[in-house]
């Protein structure tokens, strides 16, 4: 029983670290969405079902879409480094 808690804890820490330390903005956004997913499971495991539902809706749904919209605006406002669709690094 405790194995799933340990795996979830390691996963949450690893996702938080990789999403904050990377240089690629898009990768960080997707990692943050995955982080929200894992936190949903943590809330479910802790028995806080209502918080898990809210986290699933906000973390995996709304925040991802908003951050991607923000990423798109950033990409459009930067001077294009040649070749239409380069990543924002």
């Amino acid at each position: 029983m405790i194995v799933i808690d340990v795996v979830l804890a390691i996963g949450v820490l690893a996702l938080a670290w990789t999403s904050l330390s990377g240089e690629n903005l898009f990768r960080s956004i997707v990692l943050f969405v995955s982080f929200g997913l894992l936190v949903t499971m943590v809330w479910a495991r802790l028995g806080a079902v209502d918080v898990a539902i809210a986290e699933a809706a906000i973390g995996a749904g709304i925040t991802g879409a908003l951050l991607l919209a923000c990423w798109r605006r950033l990409q459009a406002s930067r001077p294009d480094p040649g070749g239409g669709a380069a990543d924002v690094q």
Binding site: V49, A57, G61, L68, A69
Partner: peptide, 26 residues
């Protein structure tokens, strides 16, 4: 805990939203 099924339902509904936003925006 049958209420966790609601969380799974929410997740199943809203997880594709990020992908839809990605396709729509980029």
């Amino acid at each position: 805990q049958a209420a966790l099924l609601d969380a799974a339902l929410t997740l199943a509904l809203l997880a594709p939203m990020t992908l839809l936003a990605f396709i729509r925006l980029s």
